[in-house]
Design a binder for these strands. Structure first.
Lengths: 201, 201
DNA sequence: TGTCTTATGGCATCGTCTGACGCAATGCGC
DNA sequence: GCGCATTGCGTCAGACGATGCCATAAGACA
């Protein structure tokens, strides 16, 4: 994932980054140990050796510490550059496929663990849906703009919503199978169903 | 909506039904007045003249008082009777179309008001997504069963997820336009996009 | 070193939600 | 009607998430 070298800047900034990472790591460890509901923000703060108040300065909510995702911005960035002549679904496939290898190489296990936690915890699953909705909205807007349609165009929204839904299915399946099958293959399968107009093979 | 006459049964049961309805009505009224966040469970309980503790005996959460929906079971029921030879999307269209007139006639305004509240309140929007996920899962299971596939079949899940997504888009559009366009027409438009493999017209 | 900025901790508070317990209303067999 | 079992409800106490406020400590900068 060729994380940019990002000079640590000042001591202050380095500390902030460190605290943030500490909080997230301890949180995920504790969640895995005692479950999400069985872990309080106080526990996490204590483990990271900061006050509970400070936890909420880094994360807007207990959920946020799990949902923070560094890949969304990347995906957005690429979406914005879609060629209007390219069929929407094809574009989605291509972009995801181009992002996947990097993610796979570097963060596969971390993402898998986090996903297991998310899908095993109703509250988190619901929250991640909210996140996907945001993504969907942005995607719909981009699609509408690229194709010269009104910002709230129904067809653009459907394309966006359906693409996200297909993607989500593939990922869920992947997580459910403990990351055993190739995610790229599952995504292809899912998008194939969509492209042939939702008929069962 | 030809609500079954359902004899009121015992006095106790009638009281329970009454309290439940009271809580829900006052809640929706207060939410409309002061907003969702601006209304506390204590307010609702006071308006309905019960203790806050009692509120939670009727509704599992503050959200639940909004999300309670009497149509889901109906939709489920019809889904279960799908003919395997019928294309899945066509079946969805047909079932929804058959349900719509009744809902439209009786509860259109109530549903519209509730939907406005839900989509205008991020927390509720997220919660309703969770509800849709449940519906999606059930639909996927039914589809898989009807077509003789494994319960977690990816294609069945994609079909379910995508159908629900398309439906959701149409409804959101309908609500955003204040119920002005015909919901049936929007649903047709949305499903058309899906059936032609997600190409923009 | 001295000063300005900013991150943090502590405290208080609100709101959601849950468990425990006792009381009162209802249902029911007589 | 009467007495007993059932059950719905209010009260109390409390955990937990989340936020505002203020004092203080740590880092930035000259």
């Amino acid at each position: 994932m060729t994380t940019a070298p990002t000079t640590p800047a000042s001591l202050r900034d380095r500390k902030k980054i460190r605290t943030r990472r500490l909080l997230q790591e301890h949180a995920l460890r504790l969640f895995a140990d005692r479950g999400y509901a069985g872990t309080t923000v106080e526990d996490i703060a204590a483990a990271a050796d900061v006050s509970p108040r400070t936890f909420f300065r880094y994360f807007a909510s207990k959920e946020a510490v799990v949902l923070e995702d560094e890949y969304d911005p990347l995906l957005f960035e690429r979406m914005r550059r879609i060629d209007p002549r390219e069929p929407p679904v094809g574009a989605m496939r291509r972009i995801i496929a181009s992002l996947l290898p990097d993610i796979y190489a570097e963060d596969r296990d971390r993402i898998l663990a986090r996903s297991r936690l998310v899908y095993g915890t109703p509250e988190l699953a619901s929250a991640v849906n909210g996140q996907l909705t945001g993504f969907e909205r942005l995607l719909a807007g981009t699609l509408a703009e690229v194709h010269g349609r009104a910002p709230d165009d129904l067809e653009a929204r459907v394309v966006a919503a359906v693409s996200v839904a297909a993607m989500r299915c593939a990922i869920e399946q992947w997580v459910a199978a403990d990351g055993a099958p190739d995610l790229g293959g599952l995504l292809d399968q899912a998008f194939d169903v969509v492209e042939r107009g939702l008929t069962l093979g």
